[in-house]
């Protein structure tokens, strides 16, 4: 279960492969208020292209995405 910290939520997607990261992100975003921020970590390299694509098709905003060693960390702001 995602832990809520104010208007933001954290999600651990490490070890999960396509299409699960996108599914978990979409579920977590549903519970967030508008302008809420989701921060997630993942290890599937597919996330690097899939999350920007998901954000684009759902009209949300990707605030950051970086890869350190094998762990990818990204933040998304709920736009609507």
């Amino acid at each position: 279960m995602p832990q809520e910290t104010g208007a933001s939520v954290k999600l651990n997607l490490e070890g999960l492969l396509c299409p699960i990261p996108v599914v978990r992100v979409s579920q977590a975003m549903k519970d967030l208020p508008v302008n809420g921020v989701l921060e997630a970590t993942a290890t599937d390299p597919g996330v690097l292209t899939d999350i920007p694509a998901w954000v684009k098709s759902t009209g949300n905003e990707l605030l950051s995405m970086e890869k350190k060693d094998k762990v990818i960390t990204f933040t998304i702001r709920k736009a609507k």
């Binding site: 396509c18 299409p19 996108v22 599914v23 992100v25 979409s26 579920q27 998901w54 098709s57 759902t58």
Partner: peptide, 12 residues
């Protein structure tokens, strides 16, 4: 199913 799940998760 992979495509269907991805589409549904994208709000389609």
């Amino acid at each position: 199913f992979n495509i269907a799940v991805g589409a549904a998760a994208s709000g389609k």
